[in-house]
Simulated scan of single mutants.
Amino acid sequence: MTLNERDQKIKTLLESLVASDAGLKLVRETLGGSGFGLLRQVEHMTFPEVTDPERLARARHGVVMDTETTGVDTTKDKVIQLAMLRFTYDDEGIIALGEGFDRFRDPGFPIPAEITAITRITDDDVRGKTISDAEVAAFLEGCDLVICHNAGFDRKMVEREFPQAGFGQLRFDCSFAQINWLVRGNNGRSLESLALKAGMIYGSHNALNDILATAFVLNTPNETHGRPFVEMYRRGSEAAILLIAKDSPFERKDDLKANGYSWSPDGLDAAGNTKSWYKTLRDDPAVLDAEAEFLRTQIYRRDVALPCYRIAGDERYSARRPQRQETFRTAEVRSVRDVLEQQVAYTTPQTSFSF
């Protein structure tokens, strides 16, 4: 047997092995025993097919979406690439992947060099190219869910850049924020690290590759915690409250941050409340009682009344101000005096911080 014949036999055997789950497992175990690992290229993977007629009968439609932009300022930067991938799903996970949408868009000015370095998108790639609201709306027709790995950024960008496309009427879920990746054994939440942990690699920082990788990561089985998609979708279905720790004492900022609050200098993430700490809570009595205790004992050191908003899926992660403001009280109101005593007394505005 010649060397070429031997190599061809080895290649044929490997191709046969990696074509099945059992064979792939065997290759991984063999390589692992010798100190090597095996990673799959997402762009060459086939998404598992669901044939269960009951699941197919209740399937709904959504898109995985990602943008590449000229910067990270959602109030002024421009979308230079918009990628979407249609899929069908139910509450058990993604059933199948469908049609894709991948378009470049000329921002009207030179792309910053640092953005080209990250995305590899050049001025020549986008020159003269446009994306109309109408074609985006047509692609979204029939969908009720949009998934992004950073929905807090991507939703604001597309709602501002494509105001007539219909994004404002859709539920957004975030594969970055709505899944407890740490419990699942992931030290980081970047898409690259999540894919690597799942045994996959892909051409990152390209919107089309990113959304394909997101779909595969969300579909990764986990014997203990189930598929990540199911956790994300369940958490996105829960009623949520956006709580604003308005006029909180400056010296308590580290306590707020440690308890999951984020700082909004411009109010975009805090329903228009500038220079405020905010947090999204599950609308559950036990969760709200615990938060009231934290605010009363560790932050304000007395009972207070704070602005809050009930957030639906079509408002989550949007820069649009929620339609109705309510009041979060750390103590039950029994009289007018109780209302007055719970008013926040701090009037000195906080300044912007760098964290």
Rank of each mutant, 00 (worst) to 15 (best):
T2A: 11
A19V: 03
S20F: 03
S20G: 04
A22Y: 02
A22L: 07
K25S: 14
G35K: 13
L38M: 10
V42W: 02
H44R: 12
F47R: 07
E49M: 05
V50R: 02
T51L: 07
H61P: 00
M65N: 00
T67N: 05
T70V: 06
G71I: 08
D73C: 09
D73H: 14
T74A: 14
T88A: 01
Y89H: 01
Y89C: 01
Y89L: 00
D91N: 07
D91G: 00
E92K: 00
G98V: 01
G100Q: 10
F101A: 02
R103Y: 02
R105T: 03
R105F: 03
I111S: 06
I115L: 04
T130Q: 15
I131Y: 09
S132A: 15
S132C: 10
C143Q: 02
I147R: 00
I147Q: 03
N150R: 07
D154V: 08
E159P: 14
E159T: 14
Q164P: 01
G166A: 06
Q169H: 07
S175Q: 09
Q178P: 00
Q178R: 00
R184G: 05
N186M: 10
G188S: 14
S190L: 12
L194G: 14
G199L: 09
S204I: 07
H205V: 11
H205M: 11
P221W: 13
G226Q: 12
P228E: 05
M232P: 11
R235V: 08
G236W: 13
E238P: 00
A245F: 09
D247T: 02
F250I: 03
E251A: 10
D254F: 13
G260Y: 09
G260E: 10
A270L: 11
T280V: 15
D283N: 14
D283P: 05
D283H: 14
D284H: 15
V287W: 03
E291A: 08
E291T: 10
R296T: 09
R296M: 08
Q298F: 02
R302M: 02
D303L: 05
C308M: 15
G313N: 02
Y317A: 04
Y317C: 04
R320H: 08
P322V: 05
E326T: 10
R329W: 12
A331Y: 03
R334I: 05
V339E: 11
L340F: 10
Q343G: 13
Q350F: 04
T351W: 04
S352L: 04
S352D: 15
F353R: 06
